[in-house]
Design a protein around this nucleic acid. Sequence first.
DNA 1: ATAGGGTTAG
Length: 690
Amino acid sequence: MTFIVSPPPTISLQQLNKPNSNSTKEEWIFSSLKSPKTPTQLKTLHAQIIKTGLTQNDLVFGQLFLCCSISDSMNYAGQVFDKIPHPKLFFYNAMIKGYSINGAHNEAVRLYSLMRLSSVTCDSFTFPVVLRSASSLKRIGVGEELHGLVVKTGFVERLILQTALIDMYCSCGLSDRGRAVFDRVVERDVICWNTMVSGYVKCGELGKAEELFGEMPVRNVSSWNTLVDMFCKSGDIVTARRLFDGMPDKDVISWNAMISGYAKIGDYQASRELFDAMPIRNVVSWNVMLTCYVNNRKFLEALELFRAMQVSDIKPNEVTVVAVLPACAHLGALDLGQWVHAYIDRNRIKMDLYVNTALIDMYGKCGSVEDAQVVFDNAVVKDTFMFSTMIEVLAMHGKPEEAFQLFSYMENVSIMPNDVTFVGLLKACSHGGMVDIGVKYFKMMRNKFRLIPKVEHYGCMVDLFGRAGRLEEAHELIKSMPMEPHPIVWGTLLSACRIHGNVKLAEEIAICLLELEPENCANYVLLSNIYSKAGRWEEVGKLRNIMKEKGVVKKPGCSSIEVNNGVNEFLAGDRAHPQCKEIYKTLNEVVKRLKVEGYNPCTSSALHDTDLDEKEQSLIYHSEKLALAFGLLSTDNKTPIRIVKNLRVCEDCHIFMKMVSKYYNRQLIIRDCSRFHHFSNGSCSCSGYW
DNA sequence: ATAGGGTTAG
């Protein structure tokens, strides 16, 4: 391998266009290649290049590769490149740069290695691009090799390369070596300083970063931004804000960094204040604000903001839809989710791994396994996250066999499962009552995949044993856990006691559980249900007094239903809905009708020991029943009614929904806090396991 | 150089 010591000769456009018969054509092709093209347009242009004999023209042919990179068609570029017998330096550079621009750093480094094996030599154009990729991939080996070449070729005096080297070393966690390069730089510009400061940040050496920031002879907005972001990320929001307020100039990035700082500590109101106050917003600003709402479970606010974004002049991108889809998923807003999906198609938003996974999750959580499956099948690239999500969706919908099959498929295509994959598999088992298979997977994760079971996996196993009525085994498993059992694990067992009416064990568990989580209402409710099922009203009363003493309030049941793209929320006994009167009228009619068919309110689901009538009243106005009534009166017979509830569906509502599905001939799809219930013709897909 | 993204036990 030889090295070019002097800068390579460059061909100017004037030279390229020196008069000949093809010059106008060349010029036209060259300039067409400067803007993004559709795959068909690319093919046509490629054909024209071949026809005009321009394949020997570095600049034009190289531009084809660069055009592919801005057209999201690096696959096509790769196909063309692979057919070239002896690619020239210019083509390598264009391809490597294309991969790098598209974030395909692995491909960039792969091609660089290929180039090194060929007789083509790198030039000053190659180095910074590959260094950037090595930096992103934290490939110190590649980076060191490049450093050696840069020194050998004498390019090391160039500031751009020195800066790239500093960044590469710091990204690989070697701030000292980055600093060594930095110290040798004779004339540093702001970018060089900034790179070193942010290099220290990357390496977690915040003190050194701050110190170097102090030494800077000149600072620009980016320098300040780095520091503001650094304090935001380290949780020191006060210092960040002080710097932010003291900045001589602010740009969008400064505002975005500060907003995301508040988002991280959960202060979505402060985030929103800044968002409203900022002079100019870009996509990132909207995305930060959206994810801020979603991370703080303000899903309705997120959707509202997304609507506001539609009327702004900022176009949503991949990140936007990945922020909005979980909001749809949580609220069960299938219509809006579908709308977002259509929006993605219409606006050619790139369907990357994130977008596809978010879509699968959204369809799953909104009750449409079929659509989730279609997105999954159509996804060209699939990773562990996507498989885990799909397995989880199948589990949630009570399709254990399909979940297991998908796992086998995953093994066949050599995608490594992770701990979350196994949570999905174990959930599939417990929702299907398949204890032995669950035990098999639980052992497999350790033995075959070297994954150490976490509390979550033990929780699944306790659930699995517990639901199947093997309460003692579940209890033993908790006692044998290598880690401290999380209250959730005890709660799971308590819930199993409720299903199987085991008051004795329930009391034993409740003693420690109520001590661990004295403020969690769910535990009191569970225990109370267990007592009332056994007819032990004195204990129910005692429990109610304890709750009153400790100030524990029952978390209100809340159900939502989406009609005409609007999400309607109902609390138990809620009278806030504008169509309240009609809703209650419909509900009372339904109850009357079902009573004729033999419906008998199952009062053990009611929390309080009140008289029967009152108990019945409180059951009738459970939030999911209100949502159902609203659904019945605002949709036609053929539309499935989809309801999302924040708590578990109670026994009474479960029976009630079964009957509605039969006597009103309606398909009801209800999501509770842990799974789906598909009701049709008097039966439910959960077959009693919930 | 600097801001934003997907799965997880009751």
